[in-house]
Design a protein around this nucleic acid. Structure first.
Length: 357
DNA sequence: GATTCGTGGTC
DNA sequence: TGACCAAGAAT
């Protein structure tokens, strides 16, 4: 049984009417009817990539305190940017953020380009983010097809093709509904709908402005869409982290390579992380010492593997190291430590402290 | 086109 | 407890 036909204009009227009444107040949004600051929109969109609104809030506010304009951000040290980004994850975003700020400050005199095509040329801005900035900051007709869009339109049209194969189909369906009038509000309306009503689990269909025309709801399969292709299971990698502390109370950290996993962030030196069992390999330690394995494990899960780190500890004299820096324990907070390394530090301090007593 | 890239919350 | 999930981009 096909759902009763409904004109695109009517769908859009229902959506915008709902949005005007239920619009979320978010730190990066302008007051109703006003144009948002493109710098704020860009910064928020980068932070929001694969990251929840609740997590982004404090980071967004902190970045604006530290760097009120894109030119301030462009003039900052990359280390300072990475440090402020610590805990947000996907650290390539922070490196590209800095690059992008420098491009905007340099090429455009601190003014963001206002077309999708130009935005797309900037570092860290892909198809989604270019469309989002064009629509939200400049009210241009663009379709930022994020996960919310995919879920909402998969349900509205009962698309049963699993993701990611369904992406181009869903993007087309969304684009067909993008209006000439208020395209920015339209985009934010779909996102708000996806975030608050058309949620992944237990969608609140009774409160949805598209309750009547939604094909998936009419079929009773709204909560089952979008379907997704099965994911590969994550392997477990293991390694030894070397916690070296001097009598003066300084620990050895080192900077990770600029690209790849946790690129540019600081770490407790460790062996490679491999799927093979890891024995205490003193030859791989960053400095010589009487290394002892601490009890327990540090567990952490990345996007595509589980990690189990065993921490080895040694008390050593402060010495020159080719690759690393000695950091006083009370100044660890000044360095850009990803969450997994904060876990290592916490575990090392707790267990090594116990041993001493 | 498939992989690589974090983290915290939720059920 | 573990798998899934979140306003994706780069390679």
């Amino acid at each position: 049984m096909a759902a009763p036909p409904i004109a695109p204009q009517e769908l859009n009227r229902l959506l915008l009417d709902w949005y005007d009444r239920h619009r979320r107040r978010l730190p990066w949004r302008a007051e109703p009817g006003k144009r948002a600051d493109p710098y704020h929109v860009w910064l928020s969109e980068i932070m929001l990539q694969q990251t929840t609104v609740a997590t982004v809030g404090p980071y967004f506010r902190r970045f604006l305190e530290l760097w009120p304009t894109v030119e301030d951000l462009a003039a900052a040290d990359l280390d300072a940017v990475l440090h402020s980004w610590q805990g947000l994850g996907y650290y390539a975003r922070a490196r590209n953020l800095h690059k992008c700020a420098q491009a905007v400050a340099g090429r455009h005199g601190g003014v963001f380009p206002d077309t999708e095509a130009e935005l797309l040329t900037l570092p860290g801005i892909g198809a989604y983010t270019a469309a989002a900035i064009a629509a939200i900051a400049f009210d241009r007709k663009a379709t930022p097809a994020d996960g919310n869009f995919e879920r909402v339109f998969a349900r509205l049209h009962a698309v049963e093709t699993p993701l990611p194969d369904a992406k181009p189909i869903l993007r087309g369906l969304a684009a067909a509904l993008t209006p000439e009038r208020r395209p920015g509000d339209h985009a934010q309306a779909v996102m708000d709908l996806g975030a608050t009503i058309c949620t992944p689990r237990s969608p609140k269909c009774m409160a949805c402005p598209w309750h009547e025309p939604c094909e998936a709801r009419n079929l009773g399969i709204a909560a089952d869409l979008p379907r997704k292709s099965p994911k590969k299971q994550k392997p477990t990698r293991r390694g030894i982290a070397f916690w070296a502390v001097t009598p003066g109370g300084a620990a050895l950290l080192r900077r990770r390579p600029e690209s790849g996993l946790l690129g540019g962030m600081m770490e407790v030196p460790s062996t490679d992380w491999t799927e093979a069992d890891s024995a205490l390999a003193e030859a791989e330690a960053p400095v010589k010492g009487e290394w002892r394995l601490l009890p327990g494990l540090v567990r952490h899960t990345f996007t595509h593997f589980h990690l189990e780190l065993t921490v080895a500890s040694a008390s050593v004299a402060e010495q020159k190291v080719t690759d690393g820096v000695w950091v006083p324990l009370d100044r660890l907070g000044e360095h850009a430590l990803p969450t997994v390394m904060k876990k290592v530090v916490t575990h090392a301090l707790a267990q090594a402290g116990k041993q001493k007593r």
